[in-house]
């Protein structure tokens, strides 16, 4: 047994944080990694995305990265994306604050929810667009 070689898998790929992240993302259809929680966001960008989802009546899991340093770094490695918030729909990384905002205003977010069979309030989405027209 002494000649067992060290695993060549990079440490990040094998980290418990990444396993946990995969589990979280698979556990719900819509997951938002954010600073703070959906009821008490602690960063303007996180607040904006959580606010849009709340307003559109989307059922989503909020993961507070400030509560777990491993998740906070791990989610950036996982998606190869340097900022938080990060939105996942059906296991796929959708984007951060700028992309979610653009997609909401263009109607692409509606299309994504419809394709993915995720319930949302279309009238609320229209209201957001009207207010930002």
């Amino acid at each position: 047994m002494s000649d067992v070689t060290q695993s060549e898998v990079p440490q990040s790929a094998a980290s418990p944080a990444l396993d946990k992240i995969r589990e979280i993302i698979a556990s719900r259809e819509v997951v938002l990694f954010m600073k703070g929680t959906k009821t008490m966001p602690q960063c303007g960008f996180s607040s904006r995305v959580a606010g849009v989802l709340n307003y559109m009546g989307v059922d989503f899991l909020d993961v507070n990265v400030l509560a777990d340093a491993g998740i906070r770094q791990g989610i950036k490695d996982f998606s190869d994306w340097p900022t938080i918030p990060q939105l996942y729909v059906k296991g796929e990384f959708v984007g951060g604050c700028d992309i979610v905002t653009e997609m909401t205003l263009s109607g692409e977010m509606d299309a994504l929810f419809e394709q993915s069979g995720i319930a949302y309030d279309k009238a609320a989405a229209e209201k957001i667009r009207e207010a930002n027209a």
């Binding site: 340097p82 984007g95 951060g96 700028d98 992309i99 653009e102």
Partner: peptide, 29 residues
């Protein structure tokens, strides 16, 4: 958009990384 913005983030070479990054907030289009 994700691919486009990943490429831009990559060009910033870690300047956005963490609390000590030189760039605190950069809205990308």
């Amino acid at each position: 958009r994700v691919q486009q913005q990943r490429a831009v983030y990559a060009s910033l070479k870690g300047k956005m990384d963490g609390p000590n990054g030189a760039l605190h907030a950069l809205a990308l289009t």
